[in-house]
Design a binder for these strands. Structure first.
Length: 208
DNA sequence: AAGGGCGGCAACCGCCTGCTT
DNA sequence: GAAGCAGGCGGTTGCCGCCCT
């Protein structure tokens, strides 16, 4: 596969940057659906695009690929992200494999812009030395004080709670989880998550 | 109504890895 | 074993829209 692209003569064209137009999307989509991908660096020329191969690959994976799930992350998806991030760190591509229809970029963005701040806030509130708007929450943050914000806050606190009520036989400690200090005693991460959600038989014990 | 600030998202950048010669 | 290349990945940036003052 790689052989066929290795010594292809690539035209030296100025590559376009920035947002993709609907026309470019259509060209890329049509080309890939019709011919598949044997070599990303050859795709732009074959598809009639003035982009580089990497850009095309990214656009396809993150936006055009069939089966992508758009829209808000579900509570279950957020649980998965937080757990896996605590377990394996910022391995977004690996985390994304446990979230069908989600891309690594999407997961990363959601973590950086939302989950990380939420966790910090919950954590600091648990420590009792924070105002609700600190830790990334802006003083003018959206939905602050609204019913929606209130609801999401409660939900988040619920699924991060110690009682593990919605964790199906999982003893989960927020403080350790967010410090990357919790460990799974009896199960590998694959066993824990299976192909998708958090169904597993083992238990988490907090290791010092 | 307007401007400033923030959050969310798309895309780029640079490094790393694996493969081939 | 070294060099060159493509693909993969994580970090970062920049733009846009929404919300608040």
């Amino acid at each position: 596969m790689r052989m066929e692209c290795r010594y292809l003569k690539k035209p030296q064209v100025e590559h376009r940057k920035g947002l993709w137009s609907p026309d470019e999307d259509q060209k890329l989509k049509d080309h890939i659906l019709k011919h598949g991908v044997s070599c990303w660096s050859a795709v732009p020329a074959k598809a009639g695009l003035q982009r580089n191969g990497k850009s095309c690959r990214l656009r396809w994976i993150n936006y055009l690929r069939p089966g992508l799930k758009r829209g808000k992350f579900s509570l279950e998806e957020e649980e998965t992200i937080v757990k896996l991030q605590a377990k394996i760190g910022n391995k977004w591509s690996q985390i994304a494999t446990h979230l069908p229809g989600r891309t690594d970029n999407e997961v990363k963005n959601h973590w950086n812009s939302y989950l990380k701040k939420k966790i910090t806030r919950v954590r600091e509130e648990a420590n009792g030395h924070i105002t609700p708007t600190a830790a990334g929450g802006s003083p003018k943050g959206r939905e602050v004080g609204t019913e929606k914000e209130h609801a999401s806050k409660i939900q988040f606190a619920e699924w991060l709670s110690f009682d593990g009520a919605n964790w199906d036989s999982c003893l989960f400690n927020l403080e350790d989880a967010v410090s990357n200090q919790w460990q799974c005693k009896n199960s590998s991460i694959e066993e824990i998550c299976g192909s998708r959600s958090l169904q597993f038989d083992g238990q988490y014990d907090i290791m010092e």
